[in-house]
Amino acid sequence: MALKNERDFAFKSLLLGVLLTLGLMGVSQQSKAEYADIVINNYADAAGMRPAVFPHWFHRIRFRCKVCHADLGFKFKAGGNEITMAKIIDGQFCGACHNGEVAWSVENCAMCHSGIPGTPTHFHGSTLQRLVAPAYKPLDAKKASKK
């Protein structure tokens, strides 16, 4: 009898632990990406590629904003530049540097196309994102997505 109670208790605490962990995971579903990281998924998902991730922090150490946003014609709008691989291999947008001369060349597909599939185009950590899309998911939404 005592043994059964002990086993019962162990089982119950295990279950409680699992439930608690699941609950906490549901609450803290925030990504910790760098401020100003951009996910670009205009066409990638539809073409069977992972979305591209652009890290502003990495590039601003090497170039002033002006190089891309004035000389190369990147608009100040995430996903608003309609970048395609065809344009890149023609030397436009990313292709102005990612050509094997200034920076590594386009055959390193997975260096840019490294985002989690299905991630929408967004500007990570932007004020607008924090205002209109609070980073939480209801618990039942998580349950539903698991099924």
Partner: peptide
């Protein structure tokens, strides 16, 4: 990158990216 929640850890190149 491999812990930041937007990079795919199933992608090997994710681990070649420089940590900030």
């Amino acid at each position: 990158p491999w812990e930041d929640g937007i990079h795919d850890t199933a992608n090997e190149a994710t681990f070649n990216l420089q940590p900030p």
